[in-house]
């Protein structure tokens, strides 16, 4: 299987005044194409720093990060931005949709920063992405007209629209109730089944069990890596769950 993400002896230090914080103290990690990896750990364990680096939002202090065959450690700020635009999809805990902007416009946003995509194609791709997350009938709704789960699905559509090699989710279910969380996880599993690589940060054990592999961080190093044995298939779980009355 192809190594999509390869992290070699990666260290990350932060300098806060005169104090140096060693957020990551030498991490080796590989994510293969088609995997669904959940990164876990307590707060301060370095998992968010790891996700920021995987997401090309931050650069390692030492070590190498090879994404889709390219070592990003030496890239400039602008090169990183193009890289994020072409290779990565982000899903955040707080959705980060533009307020008072329709779902369609929100999903089109990443393609706005890609000059090779013309406006007609941009719209077609955004519509296709929204359809793939089951929001074909909500395209012209604004975020305040959508539920939390729907907003997160718009955000997932946004992360898909540029056809990224990997989708990065940071506590994507953190603001959602249990049922909606599993709905979102079912969506991620569907995407994964279609071949998308997903890297997911969470601190919820049940959510992590939806992944194929778990990586647990502690104090800036990987404590444990494990293939998920009793994987939760979110769709099956949802079928067995009673539909809660609002």
């Amino acid at each position: 299987m192809k190594k999509l993400i390869e992290i070699i002896k990666l260290k990350k230090d932060y300098y806060i005044g005169e104090v140096t914080v060693h957020a990551l103290k030498g991490v080796d990690m590989v994510v293969n194409e088609g995997e669904f990896v959940a990164i876990m750990g307590a707060s301060g364990s370095g998992k968010s720093t790891m996700l920021n680096i995987i997401g090309c939002l931050d650069k390692p202090t030492f070590g190498d990060y090879i994404l889709d065959g390219i070592n990003i450690s030496g890239l400039s700020r602008n090169e990183l931005a193009s890289y994020r635009n072409r290779k990565l999809g982000f899903v955040f805990q707080t959705y980060n949709l533009l307020p008072r902007t329709t779902a369609l416009d929100n999903v089109e946003l990443p393609l706005m920063y890609n000059a090779t995509v013309k406006s007609k194609e941009r719209k077609e791709r955004a519509i296709a992405a929204l359809e793939s997350v089951g929001l074909a009938d909500r395209m012209y709704h604004k975020p305040n007209q959508l539920s939390g789960g729907q907003q997160q699905r718009v955000a997932i559509a946004r992360s898909l629209v540029n056809d990224p090699v990997v989708i990065l989710a940071d506590e994507a279910t953190g603001n959602l109730d249990t049922r909606t969380s599993y709905e979102i996880m079912a969506l991620f599993q569907d995407l994964n089944n279609k071949g998308k690589t997903v890297v997911f940060v969470t601190h919820e054990l049940d959510i992590a069990k939806c992944a194929t592999r778990n990586v647990i961080f502690k104090d800036g190093v990987i404590l444990r890596e494990s293939i998920v044995q009793d994987r939760i298939i979110a769709r099956e779980l949802l079928a067995g769950m009673p539909i809660e009355a609002d």
Binding site: G55, N78, A81, S82, F90, L109, Y113, N162
Partner: peptide, 16 residues
């Protein structure tokens, strides 16, 4: 600020 952060995350360069 968060919108700016998002735009940068999805590929907006400083110049954009």
């Amino acid at each position: 600020t968060r919108e700016i952060g998002l735009r940068m995350a999805i590929g907006g360069k400083g110049r954009d």
